[in-house]
Amino acid sequence: MRPSVIIVDYEAGNLRSVQRACEAVGLSAEISADPEVVRHADRLIFPGVGTAETAMGTLARLGLDEALVSFFQSGRPLLGICLGLQVLLDHTEEGARDCLGIIPGQCKRFQFVESDYKVPQIGWNEISKASEHPLMAGVPEGAEFYFVHAYYAIPDQRAHVLAETTFGDKTFASVIGRDNVFATQFHLEKSGRFGLELLAAFGKWDGAVC
């Protein structure tokens, strides 16, 4: 049977957690590093932990960078998670790398003057919706999700910011998206009930914003 979701494997850790979370909401998910499989998936999850430098290097080596851009252009639903969100942008400060350029903008590292805020941000934090999106319909205002990250996204266009989160004195884009792309800085696969609800909604999404 054709899997409903393909999880992109680019040697960036913990893909099984994402796969198990898919199973828990009734989505059949296969892990693949094959650009052809990625290009022709019905829907795609692009997870990731580690550094953007390593990730971009591996994506290029495996031919997955072009496959991802081509998948985005197809209009089919694409979900980015954590590092999978960060490399969707044009550029990241981490290793000064150019990224996929699917969402205009860049990533920067948290910098705090006050040393009480420890980087990376590790733990649960709430999101505040910046705009209405069909995938977030079931997520109540103030729901918390699990974050592990030192860099955050700054989309060029305000319309691409779907939800925001405050860490220390910094309010950043914790969910971004455009067209058929939806991406979370937090690990929805480790975020309890609300994370699973987002994943289930993604499994039913046709990629349209309204």
Binding site: E23, Y146, G195
Partner: peptide, 8 residues
């Protein structure tokens, strides 16, 4: 555990 719980 990984099949049953979805927190870190």
């Amino acid at each position: 555990v990984a099949r049953e719980i979805f927190i870190p």
